[in-house]
Structure formats: structure tokens, C-alpha cells
Design a protein around this nucleic acid. Sequence first.
DNA 1: CTGTTAGCGCCTTCAC
DNA 2: GTGAAGGCGCTAACAG
Lengths: 337, 337
Amino acid sequence: MAVTLRDVAARAGVSARTVSNVVNDFHHVSPAMRARVQAALDELDYQPNLLARSLRQGRTGIIALLLPEIAVPYFGELAHEVVERASRMGCTVLVDETSGRRSRELALLDVADRSRWVDGVLLSSLGLNGRALAGLRSRVPVVLLGERTAGASHDHVGIDNVAASRAATQHLIDAGRRRIAAVGGRAGPSDATSRLRLRGYRAALRSSPAPPGGDDLYARTPDYTRAAGAQAVRDLLARTQPPDALLCFSDELAAGALRELHDQGLRVPSDVAVVGFDDVDASRFAVPSLTSVAPDKAAIAKSALEMLVERVDGSRVGPRDVHVPYELVARESSAGS
Amino acid sequence: MAVTLRDVAARAGVSARTVSNVVNDFHHVSPAMRARVQAALDELDYQPNLLARSLRQGRTGIIALLLPEIAVPYFGELAHEVVERASRMGCTVLVDETSGRRSRELALLDVADRSRWVDGVLLSSLGLNGRALAGLRSRVPVVLLGERTAGASHDHVGIDNVAASRAATQHLIDAGRRRIAAVGGRAGPSDATSRLRLRGYRAALRSSPAPPGGDDLYARTPDYTRAAGAQAVRDLLARTQPPDALLCFSDELAAGALRELHDQGLRVPSDVAVVGFDDVDASRFAVPSLTSVAPDKAAIAKSALEMLVERVDGSRVGPRDVHVPYELVARESSAGS
DNA sequence: CTGTTAGCGCCTTCAC
DNA sequence: GTGAAGGCGCTAACAG
């Protein structure tokens, strides 16, 4: 059926070894021989069976990208950067969804680890905390995207969430806001993102001359969706004194918040300023356009893949922790009061 | 290093074949034997090398999903449905991006075809027309997502674009709109989507009692992005008589249009009604929320994967053309004038 | 019901 | 610079 190395060898009247040498240009094959083999290669339209090659070499050139959900814009944009850079590096990307569930993250990691399908794993984990990850003895290298959970024993790449959150909060303070609410996540042990961002938020408030109330200005949410953002606004507005600014820990939350504020007859930014995280493409076109903390997604993909490939190549250096740049993109939703 | 079938066989004092039988529960292994093998399996923590299995069986359980761009919300949502259903069917999904470029689509198809990595391909093609696809003699089965281009020789699944577009246009006519503009694509030979949707749009107008002007109410766009939607609105408003409704051939176009209409001081829906296509998650939360044609994405993924698996299993029936349901979801952006 | 024997297609250690 | 043989780990024919 399919044409194999042997077929080509027979056609050219040489051994399989020689054909292999030509295909991968190994050693130095004599020009005459090379030409003859090449002719046979072309005539038979030979294409190597990558499966067999991988079995032999113990390397597939495939990396797994494990995300909570690919349809969430931020993860979609991240996946885009990963796929693009991987392809430039000669790798292909296998995408799998975890729903952010710990059990599923572990199961997929396990499969990836044992099946021999993938050379390495990029994991954007929501459910696994440091201990769970440290307990993981995987053959396949894993690089974490997003937060570094305490005690993690893996490479990790993300932005400095504390600093970013602090900067975003300061931006609102500078715009004259005094009752700034933080929105998103549960700040629990398995939600490092919101924990870190909350820390930055509080740090900014503490160093501000007119500090607002305490914890009551944090609205927890079960997830980072638009629906959760809308619900959070309803919760906040039901409290005695409504906020004059929202720091939402994702653009999706912020989008839901914008919608709900609109429904409640509040104007953005005059009544309430809104800032998001992730700087998703849609935020530029929202009405009003959304101020957001923009992580350098291309840089995340680049660092992560580079570290992963190093590990695949056998590097044994200690776990690394890479911070990529972020930028606060100021737009209409937080324009000066 | 890794524990193989042989190791287990040696440990249990049986042949590799028997172990294989236990692992895949083939034939009927005697309970006693099964228990002994299972014990060895557990003790050694054996996990099959899927690579070797695939090489042997000529099947990988991997399907490739070729999309223009995963970060585009519609494709992200589609990918989500595909990944989810594939995982339920025991398959994994390899995602690759084509940028909608013909050359890249062909190249990726070729790689998928020859590398033996994937059992089948799901292709959401923008650049390939019927002839180009028909000329493709691929070993690996391919199912097309989106439009069936004329003369295509492959299975295809999508919505009935003509009917859907006609229904959406009728919806605007019923809402009292008289100058309805169509927005999106180039309606050229390699852009079947806009061609079909334009056809439905025109059919609705023709059967309407008060037909508006002619072709001048179609705004071409280079792509289906928000930026293009905004630009299209600027173009349309520069014409002598501005439209009172927009039928945008994607929700992204519509989102850009909403933004631009807002910037130009026009109110939606009172001045201009807007309808989109795809019913992306963001559209529900837009301000105003966006009326959209909602294809049943889960059904697309389901049909496509089912057809693909049938082909992988050797089915040789003629090319099939499946229409999945769609629904016009009426929201604020087209509320009665 | 289980053991033996061949490969799947490729790369690579040995000889020449 | 080239040929021959072995094996990556698994499963599918054949025995027995």
C-alpha cells in the first residue's frame, strides 16, 4: 500500500540505510548515490511514516496543551500563540480541555505521561495546587502556564500578578476612585490567580491616602465568566454603599459587569469605572471599550515552549519561574472621573 | 526504563500474547490466568505504549482539526464542541491553524495525509474551492466544516446558509426595516459562505413587498473581523442613503458594527437594527445584546465526527451533505422599530 | 485457552 | 561511504 523505505531502497538498488541517510541527510553520501536515491524517492513519492520514526526515536514532536476551556477567549488567544510558535518550532499541538477540574487535569496529565504520544505538556491549571503538582512524578516534562502555586516543582511562566493588580488598582485610585471593589475567583487555596491579584489590590489600597473599607469590597465568583461578572455586580449593588470602580480579574467578568451596570442604569465610567484582566480582543471593541491588564501572550507561549523543549532535550536545571511583561491598557471604561 | 509487555509477561510467567489479551480483553482468558496477569500488571504499573500500538494497528485515535484561527470566538466554540465530543469517543484532537490561506490548508492536509499521525481530518476551509478539494486524493478521510463548495467530493456538514440568511433578513423586514444592508466577505469564488448568505438575503428582499435598492447595499469586507465590521459601517454611512438595518455575516463583524454605530451617534436598534451570524457567547452580553443566527455547534461537531469515524472505519459511501439545525435568536439589537 | 513467530516502518550499532 | 542485522513495543496469524 504505502511506499516504505525498503521500497525506495529496492527501486534504487541500495540498502535502506542509504535511503535513510539521504532522507535525513546523515553522513556524507556520494553525490551520485544521492542523486539516484533522490530519483527513486521522487518517483515513488516516498513520505516517511512519522509514527514509526517516533517509535524508534522515542520522540514525537507533539506537545499537549491542557486548558480549562478552549472557547474561553483568553485561552483561545493563548492557544493561538502556542500553536503558532509551536508550528514555527516544528511541533504540533494536541489540545485537551480540563474544565478546570482537578480530577480531569490529573487524568489528562497521566495519559499524556504514559501514552508516549507527547513529548511535553503545557498545563494551564486551575484545580491543582502546589502540593498536588509536586507529588506528580511525571516522565514527560510539564510547564505551567498562569500562576505558580506555592511549592510547585515545575517550570512556570506568567505575569507578576501582584504587581499587575497593584498597578491596575493604582490606576483607578489615580483616576479619583475611592470605593474600588475587586471581583473574581474565590481566593481559595486552589485559586492562586485571584489570591495574588487580591494581594496586589490590597497593597495598592493600603498605600493609598484615602483607603476605603475592608474585605467587603471583594466579590467572590464561582468562575470567571460573564454571567459571574453580572451576578457579582448585582451582589455589590445590593450592599449598603455601592462601589465607584470595579477591578475584575478577567475581561469576561468585566464584560458581564458592564452589561449588568448598563441594565441597572449606571454609567461607565462616570458612575462606575471598570478594569479587566487579560486584554482579550473583544475588549477593544466593547461599548465602552474596556481598560485591561494585557499579559504578553506571545511571550508566554514563547518562554513556555522554549523551556519545555529544553526539558525534552534533557535539561535538568531546577524549576524556573519566568515573569513575562504585562501592560495596563487604559481605555474608555476607566477614563478620568 | 519503561515497563513493557514482555516485562509483565516474564513477571507473570506467561507469554506476551496473554498479557496483551488481558490488557485489551480479547478472547476468553481463564479467570486464574487473568488474575495472575493482572497482579503483574499492577505490580509493575504497566501502561501500554500507544505509539507502538498505533504503528501496529495503523490507527492513532487522533483527528486533526484544521481551522483558520483558534482565537476567533466562533472557531474556539466549535473547537470546544469537537474536543469534547472527540474525547467522549475516545479520540484526541490535534489543532492546527491555516489563517484561511489556501496554501497553508493544502500543506497541512498534505502533512496530515502522509505523516500517519492522524486518522482523519476536520477541515474548516476558507481558501479552498470545490475544484481544489476534488483534486485532492487523500488517503486520510476529510470532512468539511462550514460551506460545501460546488463539486466538492467530501463529506460536509453545516447549516443551510441560504435559508438561514433568508430567515434573518425576513426577521428584519418584519420589524419594519426597509433599507437592509448585507455585510461581510467578498462573495467571490473562494468565499462560499458570503455567497450563500447573500443569496438568501436577496431572496428575502425579492419576496418582500417593498424592495429596497440593489447591490449597493452589500458591503464587502476583506475578512470577518470586528475591525472589518467597523470599516463597513463607515463605508455604508458614507453612501447617500444610510441603511436602517445591517445583516452581518458574522458576530464579529456585527460587534465591530455596533461599536462604530455607537461612535457615529446612531442608536441600535432605533436608528439601525443589527443581526449577526454564529451566535457567539459574547453576543448575549453585548450592549445592546445581539440578535444572531445560531448554528447548532454541538450538532456540527457530532455529525462531523460521526461521519469521519465511519470513513476511518472504511465506509465508502458517496460524499454526504449534512445540514444541521440553526435558530434565529432575537435580542435587543433588532427589537421592533 | 495460550505460546510462538512475524512483522508494523524506521533508525542505528556493527562490520566492510 | 555503504550493507546487513537488530530492535523500538505492540498485536495478529498461526499453531498446539
